[in-house]
Design a protein around this nucleic acid. Sequence first.
DNA 1: TTTTGAGTTGTTCGA
DNA 2: GTCGAACAACTCAAA
Length: 498
Amino acid sequence: MDAKPTIVWFRNDFRLEDNRALSQAVLRGAPVIPVYIYAPNEEGDWPLGAASRWWLHHSLAALDDDLRRRKSRLVIRRGPALEALRSLITETGAVAAFWNRRYEPAISIRDRRIQQGLESAGVLVQTFNSSLLFEPDELRTGRGSPFQVFTPFWKTCLSKPSTEPVVDAPRQFVSPLSWPASLPLDSLGLCSRIDWASGIRATWLPGEAGAAQALVSFCLNHLLSYEATRDKPASVGTSRLSPFLHFGEIGPRQVWQRVNAVRARTEDKSIWHSADAHLRQLGWREFAHHLLYHFPHTPLEPLRPRFKHFPWSSDAGALKAWQQGLTGYPIVDAGMRELWTTGWMHNRVRMIAASFLVKHLLIPWQEGARWFWDTLVDADLANNTLGWQWVAGCGADAAPYFRIFNPTLQSTRFDSEGKYIKRWVPELANLPSRWVHDPSGAPPLTLSAAGVKLGENYPAPIVAHSFARQRALAAYQIVRKEKEYRLAFAQSSLQIDS
DNA sequence: TTTTGAGTTGTTCGA
DNA sequence: GTCGAACAACTCAAA
């Protein structure tokens, strides 16, 4: 038996179950050294946001606890990652390094470099897929190009042989004779000194146990009626697994298996529909990673180049109102405040709030993406990019440009009693539900009876819907005609040439 | 190469 | 309140 240790490098796969790199390392029979390396400036243009750092801190603490329960531990180091790995190898005499692959552009370039660096020094490197059902290179259209439309992408996924089975968490680890030094978790400075995270702390339990609990609870209580309730932000209708999936405290294969198990136990068509609808959401996660991998420029630039010429406006005041939940559109404000308080926003409300920023305010989607990146506990480069480009109409399979959400209508449709609004915008708590979606339309007496003073304790709408809608349509006309402009330009330059 | 069919999540208008 | 049609049109994926 090889007594020289194997390093398992953890990176957004903070779990013991269904972790290929870990289980394969344990199988070697040699001591296993679990490592985390904090290297924020190796994440390209996207160092972790504040909410993500909070989650990471607690995720690492939870992983360390879980490892210690198995007589192991997590060794924490700072980057650069290659140097950290090299010195660990020197200190411990390790001969192998295993990790699960990440697919973000900057990270995969870095990781290939690290792999080469270690292999050239004689270290055995093995990497695995633990975070996707299908890796970006596995799926191609008939012509061999990457997919840009979701439905054929997902059909192709579903036509593949069923996903690999989930691997159990290793029962026991072999420890090294002595443990290499580890930085204290607190020294990474992931949690800011001012405790702004109380709302996040009250909402979430980071770590593998919290993830497992969230999945069980979802399958037991919400999956059965997922189709009916997933669009209702006032109720817990969605799985709320996104941060756990992002940090790899649960993997998509585990979700896939569990949801399919529920599906297999019933003949009830409505449950089948719900299960399929939820698996489809996993499909979107896959699609987002597929797109980011094949179109690595998209976090900063539109996938459809003609949108580079979109007449965006830069209105710092409006951006701030949006960020603070003070737009005067209750459903938007409720969402933005839920985000600020809990680090998460309901999917339906994300679309409404994002659409409002991009279409009502004409503020670049990149500004919205940046804010979400900083405030979401589930901030994920692939998902965030896909979502914002979809809303802005410049991405893959995007909403057509003329599809402009009416926040008031969305609100009456999906939060009809105004429960969600009243929870997050307490200024409006005493308004009758009929008016809570659009206080500016309420009779003055109703407003004063409810203690609402528009412009004083709750803002009037910062822009009128019908005006904003017309303005957005007009702005999109410019992008729409870009093709014609280009043609005209080409012709005119031909004329100049001749 | 060309053609054909289809595409997460909508809104507004008028009856 | 509910219903259907119009909106306006692009691009991808597959045959």
